[in-house]
Simulated scan of single mutants.
Amino acid sequence: MNASELLEINKWLVDGARSAPTPSQMMAECCERLVRAGLPLWRVGVFVRTLHPEIAGRNFIWKPGAEVELGTVDYQILDSPEFIASPLVIVFRQGLEVRARVDDPASARFPIVEDLRAEGVTDYLALPLVYMDGFINASSWTTRQPGGFTEEQVNAIRSLTVPLARYIEIITLRRTATLLLDTYVGNRAGERIMGGQIRRGHADTMDAAIWLSDLRGFTALSDRLPAATIVEILNLYFDCQVAAIRAHGGEVLKFMGDGLLAVFPVDEYLGDEAQVCSRVLNAARESRAGVEALQFPNGEVVERFRFGVALHLGNVLYGNIGGGNRLDFTCIGPAVNLAARLEKIAGRLGRTVVASERFAGICNGDWSDLGEFPIAGFSKAERVYGLHDEAPPAAHA
Rank of each mutant, 00 (worst) to 15 (best):
I61W: 05
V302I: 13
D389N: 13
C240L: 05
I193Y: 14
R304D: 11
N282Q: 11
P111A: 13
V336F: 06
N325F: 04
G195F: 03
V242C: 05
L125F: 05
H396A: 08
E390L: 01
L39F: 04
C240N: 04
E29S: 14
V291D: 04
G195Q: 08
N320W: 09
A3Q: 15
N282W: 02
V130D: 10
R383C: 05
E5H: 02
A395T: 15
L127V: 03
H248Y: 01
T172D: 11
A165G: 04
S86M: 02
F47R: 02
A227Q: 14
P297V: 15
L13C: 13
M256H: 15
A209E: 11
P40C: 06
L338Q: 01
P128I: 10
I170L: 09
I375Y: 01
F373G: 02
G147L: 07
T22L: 13
Q145S: 12
E382K: 07
G65K: 08
P146G: 13
G38Q: 09
N59K: 03
F255D: 14
L311C: 08
P297R: 15
G201P: 10
I77W: 01
M1V: 15
G57L: 12
P128E: 09
L39D: 02
D239P: 08
H52Q: 04
I345F: 00
Y385P: 00
A228V: 13
D104W: 03
G350R: 07
E97D: 12
T142N: 10
A243T: 11
Q275E: 14
K380I: 11
F238A: 08
D103A: 08
H248D: 03
M206W: 12
S139Y: 01
S80E: 04
A346N: 04
L221F: 07
P40R: 00
G195E: 03
P81M: 07
D223Q: 15
D182R: 13
R174T: 06
L221N: 03
L70K: 09
H248F: 00
G134R: 07
L7P: 01
T143L: 03
